[in-house]
Nucleic acid binder design. Sequence first.
DNA 1: CAACAGTTTAGAATTACTCTAATGTACTGC
DNA 2: GCAGTACATTAGAGTAATTCTAAACTGTTG
Lengths: 149, 149
Amino acid sequence: MSKASAKTSKSASNAAIVQAALEKLRAAGLRPTKQRIALGALLFDGRDRHVTAEALHDEVRGAGADVSLATVYNTLHQFTEAGLLREVVVNAGASHFDTNVGAHHHLYYADSGELHDVDATDVRIEGLPAVPRGAEIERVDVIVRLRRR
Amino acid sequence: MSKASAKTSKSASNAAIVQAALEKLRAAGLRPTKQRIALGALLFDGRDRHVTAEALHDEVRGAGADVSLATVYNTLHQFTEAGLLREVVVNAGASHFDTNVGAHHHLYYADSGELHDVDATDVRIEGLPAVPRGAEIERVDVIVRLRRR
DNA sequence: CAACAGTTTAGAATTACTCTAATGTACTGC
DNA sequence: GCAGTACATTAGAGTAATTCTAAACTGTTG
Ligand SMILES: [Mn+2]
Ligand SMILES: [Mn+2]
Ligand SMILES: [Zn+2]
Ligand SMILES: [Zn+2]
């Protein structure tokens, strides 16, 4: 594979991903700026990802885009409000933003910080108390904390 | 009730709580210092409590003891390591330290920050994937996030 | 009660994140 | 195409929670 063709095929697949990101942004009523497209292209490529603001910032800059950390935070929160991401808190240090917005739970490797999804349709939780009056459930999170043996 | 007798009875019940805290510390191999006893007396009075470092700091100083914030943090972590407390992370802002160290889950009121315990013996979680090889479960947390309706 | 290990503390440092206010850019209507 | 405007980005300052440092203090042991 020549350098040129590699570059071309990379550009081609990028173009499709960028296009998809752009459409997601429009559908969410967010202006498709250069920065939001760059971040969206990394986040909305079909994989289930769990990113930290810092990690995503490093990643987007590594990919050649010039996006400030403030914009990464702004964008992660806007995406979350738009329902394109979900915020997951597993440790006191930092929030993780999750590209899987369906009902699911997590396996958390405390030592590496890795998060893995567990589809919620397979999981039944029984014996929880009745929802207190005047309150409603926003979400139920199950976190299985794992340790390497 | 006279001022004097109120003071006496308060001192008497305090003495019992202080004594219990002191024994807990010795059993855990922690030197029973003035600061650790003051914090222990607040934490180990039999109630199930969920405190933040800042809140406990305010509380212990309100009770007349002179304990620095650094010591509150040190002590909360030492108590946690000793199994006298457990750390609960429900929001990105701050850690909560839980005096209930038995197996249990939480109801979390997102708006007020309140945490309520749900005994784990009543709760069955089915359909979780097998524990990955090379890993073992350290703990399973269920957090029911509630919103006022 | 001396000696030492363990503890406390003020204040500086770090980390994750938010805010401010100035500059830049995407959309709308012409 | 080209304002005009509302929205977006950003550097850098600010904040909140927590940790670190290193000097002073205290509980325990012999
Ligand atoms: Mn947030
Ligand atoms: Mn901790
Ligand atoms: Zn997930
Ligand atoms: Zn609890």
